[in-house]
Measured scan of single mutants.
Amino acid sequence: MKVIFLKDVKGKGKKGEIKNVADGYANNFLFKQGLAIEATPANLKALE
């Protein structure tokens, strides 16, 4: 799953980066902790 990092995550990505991560990692950790959002077309456009 492609995500946009909202904060730096050690060993995974930095704020503003768009990366592929495992679905479970994104859903169970990144999204719940507010560290990333899904890289949907709307979210990508808002990032610009």
Rank of each mutant, 00 (worst) to 15 (best):
M1C: 10
N27L: 15
K12Q: 15
I18R: 01
P41K: 09
L44R: 06
A22R: 12
A46V: 10
I4E: 00
A39R: 00
K45H: 10
F5S: 00
N27Y: 15
G34V: 04
K2S: 11
E38R: 11
L35G: 01
L44I: 13
V21C: 08
L6R: 02
N28M: 12
L44P: 02
G16N: 07
K45Q: 10
L30G: 01
A26R: 04
K10G: 08
Y25I: 08
E48I: 14
G13C: 06
G16Q: 02
A39Y: 12
N43E: 05
N28V: 08
K7T: 12
F5Y: 07
N28H: 11
A26N: 05
N28G: 12
P41Q: 11
M1R: 09
L47E: 05
K2Q: 11
A22P: 15
K12W: 15
N20M: 15
G13E: 04
Q33T: 10
G24H: 14
G13V: 06
A46G: 10
G16Y: 09
L6Q: 02
G34H: 09
M1I: 15
A26D: 06
N28C: 12
K12S: 13
K14Q: 09
L47H: 10
G24E: 14
F31N: 02
N27P: 05
M1Q: 04
G11A: 04
E48Y: 14
Y25T: 05
L6G: 00
K7V: 14
E38F: 05
A26W: 07
G34F: 09
Q33G: 07
K10P: 15
N43Y: 06
I4T: 01
E17G: 02
F31E: 02
K12V: 15
F29E: 07
G34P: 00
F5M: 05
D23E: 15
E48W: 12
A39H: 05
F31P: 01
F29R: 07
D23I: 15
D23M: 15
L47G: 05
G11E: 05
E17A: 05
L30F: 03
L30K: 00
K19H: 11
F31S: 00
K15D: 02
G11T: 05
K7N: 07
K32E: 09
Q33L: 15
D8S: 11
N27Q: 14
A26K: 03
E17R: 02
L35S: 03
G24M: 11
I4N: 02
Q33I: 09
I37M: 10
K7P: 00
I4Y: 08
L44W: 04
D8P: 04
N20T: 14
A46C: 13
V21L: 05
E38D: 04
V21R: 01
K2N: 10
G34D: 06
N28I: 08
G13M: 04
E38Y: 06
K12P: 01
K15I: 09
F5R: 01
L44D: 02
L47K: 06
Q33P: 00
L6W: 00
V21A: 03
I4C: 07
L47Y: 14
F29K: 06
T40V: 04
G34N: 09
F5N: 01
A46I: 13
K12D: 08
A22Q: 12
L35D: 02
N20I: 15
A22I: 09
F29Y: 14
K7Q: 12
V3A: 02
E38S: 08
G34R: 07
V21K: 00
D8N: 11
A39N: 00
D23T: 15
N27D: 07
K45A: 12
K10F: 14
A42W: 06
N43R: 07
P41N: 08
I18H: 03
A36N: 01
V9M: 05
A39M: 06
I37R: 05
N20F: 15
N43D: 04
F5C: 02
G24F: 13
L30P: 01
A46M: 14
P41R: 09
A26T: 04
K32F: 08
I37A: 07
L6P: 01
E38M: 11
Y25R: 05
N27F: 15
L30A: 02
D23W: 15
A42Q: 12
A26V: 05
A42D: 12
E17M: 07
K14T: 09
A36E: 00
A26M: 05
L47V: 10
V21I: 09
L44V: 10
E38V: 08
G16C: 08
L44Y: 03
I18D: 00
L35W: 11
A26F: 14
I37V: 12
P41S: 10
K15N: 04
G24T: 14
F29L: 07
M1F: 08
E38I: 11
D8K: 07
G16I: 01
K14L: 11
A22V: 08
K2G: 05
L35Q: 03
V3P: 00
Q33D: 07
I4Q: 02
D23N: 14
F29S: 06
V21H: 02
L6T: 06
L6A: 02
I4R: 03
L6E: 01
I4P: 00
M1A: 05
K14A: 10
F5E: 01
N20G: 07
E48A: 14
L44E: 04
L35A: 05
I37D: 01
K15W: 05
K7A: 13
G13K: 01
D23F: 15
K32N: 08
K10R: 12
L47N: 07
K14V: 09
D8I: 03
T40G: 04
L35N: 03
A36D: 00
K10W: 14
G24L: 12
F31K: 05
G13F: 14
Q33M: 15
A39P: 02
A39K: 00
P41Y: 11
E48N: 13
E17F: 03
G34M: 08
K19D: 03
L44Q: 06
T40W: 02
L47F: 14
A39T: 01
A39I: 04
K2F: 14
G13I: 04
L47D: 03
I18G: 01
G11Q: 04
A46E: 11
A39G: 04
G11S: 06
L30T: 00
M1K: 10
A26P: 03
V9H: 03
Q33W: 15
P41D: 13
N43S: 08
I37E: 03
I18F: 04
A36S: 00
Y25K: 05
K2W: 15
I18S: 03
A22W: 10
K12L: 15
E17P: 00
L6N: 00
E48L: 14
L44S: 04
E17K: 03
G34L: 07
L35M: 08
N27K: 15
A39F: 11
A22N: 14
N43G: 05
L6D: 00
A39V: 06
A42H: 10
V9C: 06
N43A: 12
N20W: 15
D23Q: 15
I4G: 01
N27S: 12
L35T: 03
